[in-house]
Simulated assay, not measured.
Amino acid sequence: MGPVRFVSMDDFHRRWLHPGESLSVYCHELKRLIDRAMPAADATTRQQLVMHQFLTGLPLKISKRLRAAGEVNDLGQLMQRAKLLMTIDAENPGEKLAAVQQPNDRVEALTEQVATLTEQVAAMATNQRTSQ
């Protein structure tokens, strides 16, 4: 592995989702970077690396929820779940403020909502696996 590939791999590992950036652009950039860093790697290896960096580069709370929902072997499915979670967070900005104002009740309510959402995402994954 030459110096250019080391730089490319470093660029790949430093790539995070930028504020306002779409998930598809972020994913495309990760694929481009891994192809440049590891052109001889097989497609499965590259996909696993892209999925790992995709999760790593997402906002921490989104990444944690996706990881808690169980293993996903499809990048498209992972992107859909991330988009869903990010949309939910964007639609509920008032809940974040209320959680700060009334920590005990709001934290418990949000914890329950996250648990419910995690179960729903896991159920969706199970249904998709059984239908395939």
Rank of each mutant, 00 (worst) to 15 (best):
M1A: 15
M1R: 13
G2K: 11
V4H: 07
R5Y: 11
R5S: 15
R5T: 15
V7D: 09
M9A: 13
F12Q: 10
F12L: 13
F12D: 07
H13E: 14
H13G: 12
H13K: 15
R14M: 09
R14G: 13
R15K: 12
W16N: 11
W16A: 10
H18N: 09
G20C: 07
S22N: 05
S22H: 08
L23G: 05
S24L: 10
V25S: 13
Y26K: 04
H28K: 10
E29G: 07
L30K: 05
L30T: 09
L30D: 06
K31Y: 03
L33R: 15
I34N: 06
D35T: 13
D35I: 01
R36N: 11
A37S: 12
M38H: 11
P39S: 15
D42M: 05
A43G: 04
T44D: 10
T45R: 12
T45I: 08
R46M: 07
R46A: 07
L49Q: 09
L49Y: 03
L49T: 01
V50F: 01
M51R: 11
M51N: 04
L58R: 03
L58T: 01
L60G: 02
K61P: 00
S63T: 01
R65C: 05
L66H: 07
A68R: 15
A68S: 13
A68L: 06
E71N: 10
V72G: 04
N73A: 12
N73I: 02
N73P: 02
L75H: 14
L78N: 08
L78T: 06
L78M: 15
Q80M: 10
Q80P: 00
R81W: 03
K83M: 02
M86I: 00
T87P: 00
I88F: 02
D89M: 02
D89L: 03
A90I: 00
A90N: 00
A90T: 00
A90H: 01
E91Y: 05
E91N: 08
P93N: 06
G94Y: 05
G94Q: 09
K96A: 08
L97M: 14
A98T: 06
A99F: 06
Q101N: 08
P103A: 11
N104G: 10
D105W: 04
L110Y: 03
E112N: 15
A115K: 14
T118D: 03
V121Y: 03
V121L: 15
A122V: 02
M124P: 01
M124C: 07
A125I: 06
N127P: 00
N127Y: 09
Q128I: 10
R129G: 02
Q132A: 13
